[in-house]
Amino acid sequence: MGAVHILRRNGGSRSFSHHLRAAGMPLLFLASILATLAIHRNFGAFDVQSLALGALPLAMAATAQAIVVISGGIDLSVGSMIAVSNVLSASLMQHASFRQSLGLAVLIIGLGAVQGAINGILIILSRIPDIVVTLTTGFIWGGVALLVLERPGGGAPSDFLEIGAGADLSPFLPNALLLLIVAVAVIWLPIRSSRLGLSLYASGSDSVAAFRSGVDPRLARILAYGLGGIFCAVGGVSLTMTTGIGAPLAGAYYTLSSVAAVVIGGVSLNGGRGGVLGPILAALLLTLLPMDLIFLNIDPNYGQVIQGTLIVLVVMVGGFAAFLQGRS
């Protein structure tokens, strides 16, 4: 009888902050689109295209970060890994043909997987917390990027750049957005729905319980960081595609912004919860903001302030909800 009683009492109501997390990001994104339309009446295909182009690398960074965070880690080397693939692709593709460029892109994405896996392996071998290891490897990959290309330069064949710039299907469905969708759909979705994906969520949620359920948390960690590395590399190559050059210091922005996108996108930093959609929408939002500021003739440098404020506000609202709940 006690059993029935308990069953009934716990019947399903979820917390307010949970709802907030789940619904917050799409609502916020919708609001910012509406705001953009209000500010910029002529917002059209061209702007959609430049938004998608601008947001592509960050969306990739956000996806990478989200996967790592879901599995219980955090990757502060995201920016540097993007920088490495960016300068690698720009320097290797400079004199390559279109076909060679495609091959090189695949190669670099493979290297990204290795790079990410190295992060995971180092965390396991060194037994130092993720945050310290990736802060340090970020430093190291940053050095590697500088080694490949000391100052901004390089390039890629124009056909290759066209892939990202065009809008072959519909003017409102730019290729950059398609690329984003394809990358996520081909790499992440199959994994997510498999037992492998479950094991990522499981080890992020409770690594001991996961181990007892037959997951090897070390493999899961390497896998998560490896996947993160893949998405970083896609981000780095797409940065080359969208900017046409490689810049060894361009990555710095993506580390902090990827964490911002993950937090704003509603993924719990405790691991085990959330998905990649929220962070991707957050990445679009974070790219849209400076664009809006330019339309409004406001110094786009405010973008960084707003980004920081957004992070703080989003986490504070979550905390505030929990705070109120604790009171009542």
Binding site: L256, A260, N301, Y302, G303, Q304, V305, I306, Q307, G308, T309, L310, I311, V312, V315
Partner: peptide
């Protein structure tokens, strides 16, 4: 977040 705010 606050670091970004201050930097910006």
């Amino acid at each position: 977040g606050t670091g970004l705010m201050v930097g910006g």
